[in-house]
Write a protein that binds this DNA or RNA. Sequence first.
DNA 1: TTAATTCCTATTAATTAAATAGAAATTATT
DNA 2: AATAATTTCTATTTAATTAATAGGAATTAA
Lengths: 134, 134
Amino acid sequence: MKLTTRFRYGTRAVLDLAIHAAERPVSLKDIAQRQGISRKYLETLFSTLQSSGIVRAVRGPRGGYRLTRKPEDISLRRLYEVLEGSGPLVDCTADPDICLRSASCVTQQVWEEMYNLCIGYLDSISIQELINRS
Amino acid sequence: MKLTTRFRYGTRAVLDLAIHAAERPVSLKDIAQRQGISRKYLETLFSTLQSSGIVRAVRGPRGGYRLTRKPEDISLRRLYEVLEGSGPLVDCTADPDICLRSASCVTQQVWEEMYNLCIGYLDSISIQELINRS
DNA sequence: TTAATTCCTATTAATTAAATAGAAATTATT
DNA sequence: AATAATTTCTATTTAATTAATAGGAATTAA
Protein backbone atom coordinates (compact mmCIF):
# COMPACT_ATOMS: atom_id res chain seq x y z
CA MET A 1 0.00 0.00 0.00
CA LYS A 2 1.83 3.00 -1.35
CA LEU A 3 0.71 6.44 -2.39
CA THR A 4 1.28 7.09 -6.07
CA THR A 5 3.81 9.55 -7.36
CA ARG A 6 0.94 11.33 -9.08
CA PHE A 7 -0.71 12.19 -5.80
CA ARG A 8 2.47 13.03 -3.92
CA TYR A 9 3.95 15.20 -6.66
CA GLY A 10 0.59 16.74 -7.37
CA THR A 11 0.15 17.76 -3.76
CA ARG A 12 3.59 19.34 -3.63
CA ALA A 13 2.96 21.13 -6.90
CA VAL A 14 -0.36 22.57 -5.74
CA LEU A 15 1.24 23.63 -2.49
CA ASP A 16 4.03 25.31 -4.41
CA LEU A 17 1.49 27.05 -6.60
CA ALA A 18 -0.47 28.23 -3.57
CA ILE A 19 2.64 29.66 -1.98
CA HIS A 20 3.91 31.45 -5.09
CA ALA A 21 0.70 32.62 -6.67
CA ALA A 22 0.57 36.36 -6.28
CA GLU A 23 -0.50 38.64 -9.11
CA ARG A 24 1.00 36.44 -11.84
CA PRO A 25 0.16 32.89 -12.78
CA VAL A 26 2.87 30.36 -11.96
CA SER A 27 4.47 28.45 -14.83
CA LEU A 28 5.16 24.76 -14.70
CA LYS A 29 8.75 25.55 -15.52
CA ASP A 30 9.10 27.37 -12.22
CA ILE A 31 7.33 24.71 -10.21
CA ALA A 32 9.43 22.05 -11.89
CA GLN A 33 12.63 23.82 -10.93
CA ARG A 34 11.66 24.48 -7.35
CA GLN A 35 10.23 21.03 -6.70
CA GLY A 36 12.64 18.95 -8.73
CA ILE A 37 9.89 17.37 -10.81
CA SER A 38 10.08 17.12 -14.61
CA ARG A 39 8.05 19.74 -16.41
CA LYS A 40 6.60 17.10 -18.71
CA TYR A 41 5.32 15.09 -15.79
CA LEU A 42 3.74 18.17 -14.25
CA GLU A 43 1.96 18.83 -17.52
CA THR A 44 0.07 15.59 -17.23
CA LEU A 45 -0.84 16.31 -13.62
CA PHE A 46 -2.04 19.83 -14.33
CA SER A 47 -4.14 18.64 -17.19
CA THR A 48 -6.03 16.53 -14.66
CA LEU A 49 -6.08 19.30 -12.08
CA GLN A 50 -7.55 21.72 -14.56
CA SER A 51 -10.26 19.40 -15.80
CA SER A 52 -11.19 18.82 -12.17
CA GLY A 53 -11.58 22.54 -11.66
CA ILE A 54 -8.78 22.94 -9.14
CA VAL A 55 -6.54 25.15 -11.27
CA ARG A 56 -7.01 27.32 -14.33
CA ALA A 57 -4.45 27.81 -17.07
CA VAL A 58 -3.34 31.09 -18.61
CA ARG A 59 -1.65 30.42 -21.91
CA GLY A 60 1.11 32.31 -23.64
CA PRO A 61 4.14 34.17 -22.33
CA ARG A 62 3.97 35.03 -18.64
CA GLY A 63 1.23 32.44 -18.45
CA GLY A 64 0.95 29.52 -16.11
CA TYR A 65 -1.61 28.32 -13.63
CA ARG A 66 -3.72 29.80 -10.86
CA LEU A 67 -5.77 28.16 -8.17
CA THR A 68 -9.48 28.56 -8.75
CA ARG A 69 -10.23 28.80 -5.05
CA LYS A 70 -8.64 29.60 -1.74
CA PRO A 71 -6.06 27.20 -0.28
CA GLU A 72 -8.33 26.54 2.71
CA ASP A 73 -10.96 25.23 0.34
CA ILE A 74 -8.70 22.63 -1.26
CA SER A 75 -8.50 19.47 0.81
CA LEU A 76 -6.01 16.69 0.35
CA ARG A 77 -8.99 14.44 0.01
CA ARG A 78 -9.98 16.24 -3.15
CA LEU A 79 -6.46 15.99 -4.53
CA TYR A 80 -6.36 12.32 -3.62
CA GLU A 81 -9.60 11.61 -5.41
CA VAL A 82 -8.55 13.52 -8.48
CA LEU A 83 -4.92 12.43 -8.76
CA GLU A 84 -4.66 9.02 -7.17
CA GLY A 85 -7.82 7.95 -8.86
CA SER A 86 -7.75 4.41 -7.54
CA GLY A 87 -10.79 4.63 -5.27
CA PRO A 88 -11.17 2.42 -2.21
CA LEU A 89 -8.45 0.13 -0.87
CA VAL A 90 -10.16 -2.85 -2.49
CA ASP A 91 -12.37 -3.00 -5.55
CA CYS A 92 -15.14 -4.97 -3.85
CA THR A 93 -15.98 -1.98 -1.67
CA ALA A 94 -17.05 0.04 -4.67
CA ASP A 95 -18.59 -2.85 -6.57
CA PRO A 96 -19.61 -5.83 -4.42
CA ASP A 97 -20.62 -7.84 -7.46
CA ILE A 98 -17.05 -8.54 -8.45
CA CYS A 99 -16.78 -11.07 -5.62
CA LEU A 100 -19.31 -13.75 -4.80
CA ARG A 101 -18.39 -13.54 -1.15
CA SER A 102 -19.10 -9.86 -0.66
CA ALA A 103 -22.33 -10.33 1.25
CA SER A 104 -20.73 -12.33 4.03
CA CYS A 105 -17.16 -11.05 3.86
CA VAL A 106 -16.00 -9.62 7.16
CA THR A 107 -12.64 -8.54 5.79
CA GLN A 108 -14.34 -6.32 3.24
CA GLN A 109 -15.90 -4.37 6.10
CA VAL A 110 -12.50 -3.89 7.65
CA TRP A 111 -10.90 -2.61 4.45
CA GLU A 112 -13.78 -0.23 3.99
CA GLU A 113 -13.48 1.14 7.50
CA MET A 114 -9.77 1.60 7.03
CA TYR A 115 -10.39 3.49 3.83
CA ASN A 116 -12.88 5.75 5.59
CA LEU A 117 -10.26 6.55 8.20
CA CYS A 118 -7.77 7.58 5.52
CA ILE A 119 -10.26 9.66 3.60
CA GLY A 120 -11.44 11.34 6.77
CA TYR A 121 -7.92 12.29 7.66
CA LEU A 122 -7.15 13.65 4.19
CA ASP A 123 -10.38 15.60 4.34
CA SER A 124 -9.21 17.30 7.50
CA ILE A 125 -6.03 18.68 5.90
CA SER A 126 -6.20 21.62 3.51
CA ILE A 127 -3.54 23.24 1.38
CA GLN A 128 -3.74 26.21 3.75
CA GLU A 129 -2.92 23.86 6.60
CA LEU A 130 0.20 22.78 4.72
CA ILE A 131 1.16 26.41 4.14
CA ASN A 132 0.80 27.07 7.85
CA ARG A 133 3.05 24.19 8.69
CA SER A 134 5.77 25.17 6.27
CA MET B 1 -3.43 3.13 -2.90
CA LYS B 2 -4.63 -0.44 -2.94
CA LEU B 3 -4.13 -3.36 -0.61
CA THR B 4 -2.25 -6.21 -2.24
CA THR B 5 -3.83 -9.52 -3.05
CA ARG B 6 -1.20 -11.10 -0.82
CA PHE B 7 -2.48 -9.34 2.24
CA ARG B 8 -6.16 -9.71 1.45
CA TYR B 9 -5.96 -13.39 0.55
CA GLY B 10 -3.58 -14.05 3.39
CA THR B 11 -5.98 -12.54 5.90
CA ARG B 12 -8.87 -14.59 4.60
CA ALA B 13 -6.77 -17.73 4.64
CA VAL B 14 -5.64 -17.20 8.24
CA LEU B 15 -9.20 -16.48 9.26
CA ASP B 16 -10.33 -19.67 7.55
CA LEU B 17 -7.61 -21.59 9.32
CA ALA B 18 -8.59 -20.12 12.66
CA ILE B 19 -12.21 -21.09 12.14
CA HIS B 20 -11.52 -24.64 10.99
CA ALA B 21 -8.57 -25.62 13.13
CA ALA B 22 -9.78 -28.17 15.63
CA GLU B 23 -7.78 -31.28 16.45
CA ARG B 24 -6.41 -31.69 12.91
CA PRO B 25 -4.21 -29.33 10.92
CA VAL B 26 -5.93 -27.67 7.98
CA SER B 27 -4.62 -28.40 4.50
CA LEU B 28 -4.14 -25.73 1.88
CA LYS B 29 -6.30 -27.80 -0.42
CA ASP B 30 -9.24 -27.28 1.91
CA ILE B 31 -8.61 -23.60 2.39
CA ALA B 32 -8.22 -23.18 -1.35
CA GLN B 33 -11.57 -24.81 -1.99
CA ARG B 34 -13.45 -22.90 0.65
CA GLN B 35 -11.92 -19.53 -0.18
CA GLY B 36 -11.66 -19.84 -3.93
CA ILE B 37 -7.93 -19.15 -3.97
CA SER B 38 -5.47 -21.30 -5.92
CA ARG B 39 -3.57 -23.78 -3.79
CA LYS B 40 -0.32 -22.78 -5.44
CA TYR B 41 -0.83 -19.19 -4.49
CA LEU B 42 -1.61 -20.13 -0.91
CA GLU B 43 1.62 -22.10 -0.78
CA THR B 44 3.64 -18.96 -1.34
CA LEU B 45 1.66 -17.10 1.31
CA PHE B 46 1.99 -19.84 3.90
CA SER B 47 5.69 -20.07 3.30
CA THR B 48 5.89 -16.44 4.43
CA LEU B 49 3.44 -16.97 7.26
CA GLN B 50 5.44 -19.88 8.59
CA SER B 51 8.78 -18.14 8.46
CA SER B 52 7.18 -15.27 10.36
CA GLY B 53 6.06 -17.65 13.05
CA ILE B 54 2.34 -17.21 12.55
CA VAL B 55 1.60 -20.76 11.44
CA ARG B 56 3.35 -24.10 11.70
CA ALA B 57 3.24 -26.82 9.06
CA VAL B 58 2.58 -30.50 9.59
CA ARG B 59 3.81 -32.44 6.58
CA GLY B 60 2.51 -35.62 5.07
CA PRO B 61 -0.98 -37.05 4.73
CA ARG B 62 -3.54 -35.46 7.04
CA GLY B 63 -1.05 -32.67 7.40
CA GLY B 64 -1.60 -29.00 6.92
CA TYR B 65 -1.13 -25.89 9.00
CA ARG B 66 -1.93 -24.78 12.52
CA LEU B 67 -1.86 -21.38 14.10
CA THR B 68 0.99 -21.01 16.55
CA ARG B 69 -1.00 -18.76 18.84
CA LYS B 70 -4.52 -17.82 19.74
CA PRO B 71 -6.63 -15.85 17.25
CA GLU B 72 -6.85 -12.95 19.70
CA ASP B 73 -3.09 -12.65 19.62
CA ILE B 74 -2.85 -12.27 15.84
CA SER B 75 -3.50 -8.71 14.75
CA LEU B 76 -4.14 -7.59 11.22
CA ARG B 77 -1.22 -5.27 11.72
CA ARG B 78 1.06 -8.25 12.03
CA LEU B 79 -0.39 -9.84 8.92
CA TYR B 80 -0.03 -6.57 7.07
CA GLU B 81 3.60 -6.22 8.01
CA VAL B 82 4.37 -9.80 7.08
CA LEU B 83 2.35 -10.13 3.88
CA GLU B 84 2.06 -6.67 2.39
CA GLY B 85 5.67 -6.01 3.14
CA SER B 86 5.73 -2.56 1.57
CA GLY B 87 6.25 -0.55 4.72
CA PRO B 88 5.08 3.08 5.04
CA LEU B 89 2.94 4.85 2.46
CA VAL B 90 6.02 6.62 1.10
CA ASP B 91 9.63 5.51 1.12
CA CYS B 92 10.96 8.77 2.54
CA THR B 93 9.27 8.05 5.87
CA ALA B 94 11.46 5.05 6.45
CA ASP B 95 14.58 6.52 4.90
CA PRO B 96 14.66 10.34 4.74
CA ASP B 97 17.93 10.33 2.85
CA ILE B 98 16.32 9.24 -0.37
CA CYS B 99 14.94 12.76 -0.82
CA LEU B 100 16.87 15.98 -0.39
CA ARG B 101 13.74 17.76 0.74
CA SER B 102 12.88 15.48 3.64
CA ALA B 103 13.99 17.87 6.36
CA SER B 104 11.58 20.59 5.32
CA CYS B 105 8.86 18.52 3.65
CA VAL B 106 5.48 19.08 5.21
CA THR B 107 3.78 16.53 3.01
CA GLN B 108 6.04 13.82 4.34
CA GLN B 109 4.68 14.49 7.82
CA VAL B 110 1.15 14.10 6.53
CA TRP B 111 1.84 10.78 4.82
CA GLU B 112 3.48 9.51 7.95
CA GLU B 113 0.55 10.48 10.13
CA MET B 114 -1.82 8.82 7.71
CA TYR B 115 0.22 5.65 7.84
CA ASN B 116 0.14 5.70 11.62
CA LEU B 117 -3.62 5.93 11.53
CA CYS B 118 -3.83 2.87 9.27
CA ILE B 119 -1.42 0.82 11.31
CA GLY B 120 -3.16 1.79 14.53
CA TYR B 121 -6.44 0.63 13.13
CA LEU B 122 -5.06 -2.67 11.88
CA ASP B 123 -3.46 -3.17 15.27
CA SER B 124 -6.85 -2.89 16.91
CA ILE B 125 -8.36 -5.75 14.90
CA SER B 126 -7.47 -9.34 15.70
CA ILE B 127 -8.36 -12.56 13.95
CA GLN B 128 -10.62 -13.33 16.90
CA GLU B 129 -12.44 -10.08 16.24
CA LEU B 130 -13.05 -11.23 12.67
CA ILE B 131 -14.34 -14.57 13.93
CA ASN B 132 -16.75 -12.76 16.22
CA ARG B 133 -18.05 -10.70 13.35
CA SER B 134 -18.62 -13.63 11.06
C1' DT C 1 4.31 -48.93 -0.56
C1' DT C 2 1.19 -45.46 -1.60
C1' DA C 3 -0.88 -41.18 -1.50
C1' DA C 4 -1.37 -36.70 0.57
C1' DT C 5 0.71 -33.16 1.81
C1' DT C 6 4.30 -29.29 2.40
C1' DC C 7 8.65 -27.34 0.38
C1' DC C 8 11.71 -25.26 -2.89
C1' DT C 9 13.16 -22.77 -6.86
C1' DA C 10 11.95 -20.89 -10.90
C1' DT C 11 9.40 -18.73 -14.50
C1' DT C 12 5.79 -16.34 -16.83
C1' DA C 13 2.03 -13.24 -17.35
C1' DA C 14 -0.45 -9.20 -16.32
C1' DT C 15 -1.06 -4.82 -14.72
C1' DT C 16 -0.06 -0.32 -13.59
C1' DA C 17 2.62 3.60 -12.85
C1' DA C 18 6.18 6.59 -14.30
C1' DA C 19 8.40 9.15 -17.47
C1' DT C 20 9.30 11.02 -21.90
C1' DA C 21 8.51 12.88 -26.74
C1' DG C 22 7.23 16.03 -30.18
C1' DA C 23 4.54 19.05 -32.39
C1' DA C 24 0.28 22.16 -32.27
C1' DA C 25 -2.19 26.01 -30.29
C1' DT C 26 -2.26 30.32 -27.81
C1' DT C 27 -0.96 34.90 -26.69
C1' DA C 28 1.91 38.76 -24.41
C1' DT C 29 5.40 41.47 -25.86
C1' DT C 30 8.30 43.91 -28.98
C1' DA D 1 3.98 40.91 -38.03
C1' DA D 2 7.38 38.25 -35.62
C1' DT D 3 9.09 36.04 -31.65
C1' DA D 4 9.29 33.47 -27.69
C1' DA D 5 7.06 31.50 -23.70
C1' DT D 6 3.82 28.99 -22.42
C1' DT D 7 -0.10 25.37 -22.27
C1' DT D 8 -2.33 21.42 -24.90
C1' DC D 9 -2.81 17.13 -27.08
C1' DT D 10 -1.84 12.46 -28.23
C1' DA D 11 1.04 8.88 -28.12
C1' DT D 12 4.74 5.94 -26.79
C1' DT D 13 8.15 3.79 -24.06
C1' DT D 14 10.15 2.17 -19.98
C1' DA D 15 10.25 0.31 -15.56
C1' DA D 16 8.59 -1.88 -11.64
C1' DT D 17 5.83 -4.78 -9.19
C1' DT D 18 2.42 -8.01 -8.31
C1' DA D 19 -0.03 -12.03 -9.39
C1' DA D 20 -0.16 -16.49 -10.77
C1' DT D 21 1.59 -20.80 -12.29
C1' DA D 22 4.81 -24.92 -12.85
C1' DG D 23 7.15 -29.02 -11.66
C1' DG D 24 9.41 -31.85 -8.99
C1' DA D 25 11.60 -32.93 -4.23
C1' DA D 26 10.94 -34.03 0.55
C1' DT D 27 8.16 -35.81 4.23
C1' DT D 28 5.22 -38.93 6.59
C1' DA D 29 0.63 -41.13 8.03
C1' DA D 30 -1.81 -45.03 6.95
